[in-house]
């Protein structure tokens, strides 16, 4: 399964690959389905923020709460994310997310957004751009985040 590498990383409590309707294509962990639904919701919100700010296409998302840290990457119309225990180093999870996201764009990966739902208007081109940047951004941003810590 695609998420096996994520599941085995230290501190990962849940992870999910989810489409824009909030239904998980794949998930791990007790809260995987909740994580999937909320990641889809957060993506919709963050894309509105990006659009309104003129910030371009959103490619990744991260936030921290009292108990967990969540990191996610957007690939095509799909979102791939993991929830880790607070205080866990998220770099390896972010790298794994980027690797999995890059793999989703290869033959045998996910179907194109246009094929999955007619409502996903215009997301096919956006998807390929997102996949590329998610895979490339991962390690670079991970290093920057580590330095900030």
């Amino acid at each position: 399964m695609r998420l096996d590498t994520l599941r085995n990383l230290p501190g990962v409590r849940a992870c999910a690959l989810v489409s824009e309707d909030g239904l998980p294509l794949e998930m791990q962990g007790e809260l995987g389905d909740v994580l999937a639904a909320e990641l889809a919701s957060l993506r919709a919100s963050s894309e509105r923020v990006g659009r309104r700010l003129g910030a371009g296409q959103m490619t990744r998302l991260a936030f921290t709460s009292d108990l967990i840290e969540v990191v996610a990457v957007f690939t095509g119309s799909f979102t791939l994310g993991a929830a880790l225990l607070r205080g866990t180093d998220t770099r390896s999870a972010q790298q794994a997310l980027a690797r999995i996201a890059a793999g989703l764009g290869t033959p045998g990966g996910l179907p194109s957004p246009a094929a999955t739902d007619g409502a996903a208007q215009g997301s096919e081109v956006r998807g390929s751009e997102t996949r590329g940047s998610a895979a490339q951004d991962g390690p670079v941003q991970d290093s920057a985040a580590a330095e900030r810590r």
Binding site: G22, L23, A37, S41
Partner: peptide
Amino acid sequence: SGRSNLGQARL
């Protein structure tokens, strides 16, 4: 609506 979050609806 047509672009709702079905995952949230189910949970």
